[in-house]
């Protein structure tokens, strides 16, 4: 991120953090005081989160004022800027990785048995980043084969080690 982008990001995060800090503060004030249990009023559950909410709000306000001074509110969202982001190779790689990992961690594990879920994930991950579209398959047979071997080894070894050595019931 360059300095200009950072100032914009600071502007947005400071608003998010202020909203967060204020909500923590409000929720803490609303927490029960447990008077019916006759507890010491200095030990009410909301006191420390309330204190933290107030500090987070204060720090975020400082960040907000600083971003305002640096003109971070000029977000510069134009059609050109958005299309540049969408075409940026690094952003594409990032979102591909993120999507693959999220699908594996939050959907495949638990839905499929552990070994096939892991096998599919590792194989597709390696293929997406190593397979070259446009080059005929037979020229890349080695890449595909290595992908299958790696995926099989990883899923079986991890499953066996956790199931039988660490005695963890796999998801």
């Amino acid at each position: 991120m360059n300095e200009r982008q950072m100032q914009r990001a600071d502007f947005i995060t400071s608003i998010v953090l202020i909203a967060f800090g204020v909500s923590v503060l409000v929720l803490s004030i609303q927490m029960p005081r447990l008077e019916n249990k006759n507890i010491n009023p200095y030990t009410v559950p909301g006191i420390v989160p309330g204190f933290l909410g107030a500090i987070i709000t204060l720090l975020a306000l400082i960040l907000f004022v600083r971003a305002l001074r640096q003109r971070g509110f000029q977000l510069g969202i134009t059609r050109q800027a958005v299309s540049n982001i969408v075409k940026n190779e690094m952003i594409i790689r990032l979102f591909l990785t993120l999507a693959l990992c999220l699908v594996y961690a939050l959907l495949l594990v638990g839905w499929l048995p552990y070994i096939p879920a892991t096998l599919i994930f590792v194989f597709i991950f390696v293929m997406i980043f190593e397979y070259q579209w446009g080059v005929p398959l037979f020229k890349q047979a080695r890449t595909v084969l290595m992908g299958i071997v790696e995926a099989t080894l990883v899923s079986v070894i991890v499953a066996v080690v956790f199931e039988y050595v660490f005695l963890v019931k796999l998801p």
């Binding site: 990992c101 892991t118 590792v122």
Partner: peptide, 24 residues
């Protein structure tokens, strides 16, 4: 290459996070 190493690391992250309490 990183494209071979990273999926293995992520598999370990997932099983590692799960293993201590066996909770999805």
């Amino acid at each position: 290459p990183r494209s071979k190493l990273m999926p293995i690391i992520f598999v370990l992250c997932v099983i590692g996070a799960y293993a201590i309490h066996s909770r999805i």
